[in-house]
Design a protein around this nucleic acid. Sequence first.
DNA 1: CTGTTAGCGCATTCAT
DNA 2: ATGAATGCGCTAACAG
Lengths: 346, 346
Amino acid sequence: MAEREEGGVATLRDVAREAGVSLATADRVVNRRPGVRAATIARVEAAVESLRFERHPGAAELARRVRFKVSAVLPRGTNPFMARLAEELRQAARTLGARRIDLALIEADGFRPDRLAAAIARAAAAGDAVIAVGLDDPGVLAAIDAAQACGVPVVTLVSDVPGSARHRYVGIDNRAAGRVAGALAGRFLGAAPRSVAVLLGARALRDHRDRLDGFAEALTERFPHLAISGIVEGQDDADAAHAAISALFASGAAPAAVYSAGAGNAGLVQALRDAGSTALVIAHELTAETRPLLEDGALDALIVQDPGHEARSAVRVVLAALNGTGVDEDQERIRIEILLKDNLPF
Amino acid sequence: MAEREEGGVATLRDVAREAGVSLATADRVVNRRPGVRAATIARVEAAVESLRFERHPGAAELARRVRFKVSAVLPRGTNPFMARLAEELRQAARTLGARRIDLALIEADGFRPDRLAAAIARAAAAGDAVIAVGLDDPGVLAAIDAAQACGVPVVTLVSDVPGSARHRYVGIDNRAAGRVAGALAGRFLGAAPRSVAVLLGARALRDHRDRLDGFAEALTERFPHLAISGIVEGQDDADAAHAAISALFASGAAPAAVYSAGAGNAGLVQALRDAGSTALVIAHELTAETRPLLEDGALDALIVQDPGHEARSAVRVVLAALNGTGVDEDQERIRIEILLKDNLPF
DNA sequence: CTGTTAGCGCATTCAT
DNA sequence: ATGAATGCGCTAACAG
């Protein structure tokens, strides 16, 4: 039982001929450019319809001469996930943006909203679009809205800026990610009443707070025998995380599980070892830091977003915004993945 | 702190000029075509190096006139995952293959190796490449090897044909997927000794058997208190699965968990309800059948491979084989995803 | 408002 | 063994 696709594909030239107009006019209609009589538009659209014309994106890209300058603003620091994201963005700009995108990677202090806002404003002034890891802050929001108002699309990546006019957010639903962590903790720990702790980079980071909210929500709804006994902040840094968790244990807490919503997991693990704790640990992101920890059982599960996918998606979305074309929603959806030792990718 | 990428990108024309040769010769060298003196090759390669030339895939595709005829052979039947895969393949051929690929979707009986082998042979004779969901069978293997020997690349999809000369396998590591299922079952069930059951489509399906092996391996190694008390086959069909599981319960088994490595999960769930069982259930693939079951708790976890990703990957791999170019290994790796109610994508 | 023309970067004849 | 010329399908200037 074979189904065959039709062989010869119609080109814009075919459409033009069929509609009895020139190539340029057909192009104007197809790309919704102004300056064509309604009657002509109708004729061309009829031709498009009857020939089932679909434009060849490769050829379109080739013919379009302009080059876009886009900046990506990422948090400065040692966070390995962010380093990976930067590399993936660079690569995505090369392969997907072909020669159309000129990507500038910019680092800004990820915990200083004023710096981020300034960096976004500068990037918007100097370029055609900006990609930024957001921060939930009025100044950042204002910078984004200003950029958008000037016609410079802003795509938030990994962490959104709710309420802003950003063109689009590319990243996971962090509240759902937190719920996943809660569900895993609940399932893994069993039915006995226990206390659990949460380690964040900082409460000011929107993504971390969303994860915490989702985690708490899941426990409350489905595992009420689990109580959150401590929430500490580690600035996404191993040393700070070590100190924060050590302090928690020093204060007498003995959580049966720790949910690490941010980075700095090596410090967390070390603190647990120091305290002689065998707590269940659920953390985020697959990096050079977390991979060995998952492999040797120091971490029980990882909740992950694919930085390669996110970077490619951000570039595709920016490109689409810049040429006013659409995106494949399905392909741009970033999934929340769960990694155990057993499904660790190479 | 801004890092800038270089602005103007070198074209083949630049390379030719730099090397003091014509465009055609530069093209010959870049695409490793014969008929160029070693000395000239060296000069061109030096130019490529110094200008950091990378060819523009879009332009290359546009210029290449040939169209490839590729066939995808999928198992006939009601399996919703396969239906989705077919649709994704169709779409991937349109968007990725632009106008270069002429995709024929072919259905063959998925449980009859002779039919599959014949379909592959026919597809190979009539086309330039074939994509096929494999079956671990000597006849199928022979058909694949014959195709490859004739210069027709064969890509196995979802289920591999081990030992064959297939150009490449696109899909998950099914043994690892089985281990994931085992790990989840072990973690979710707790420390008490229990028995668990496995439902397969058929033992003859390589992917199902690999999953079973991985599952058993994980239990033996890490959760030896869990014993596999029954392995039944349901032909990937809801009615057959219902019958098989019902028979299992009728025979006196009372598994604490069921690992469903194939399809037909609606039947499995119904059989459990009929038997009054509240067994933990871990199944595969997100489809219209499994989604509601996960949402309402009839299924506890789903192990999933993204059919969209797989289809796009298969098309990219075929295209690369056909033009003799390379692939981005990282992008083509198909991940084993774990889905709970909480990270169900829309 | 509409048509003509000249490329984008590359692969491919056809010459030499 | 190498080069010149042509065109893929489309967009962008520039004419009219």
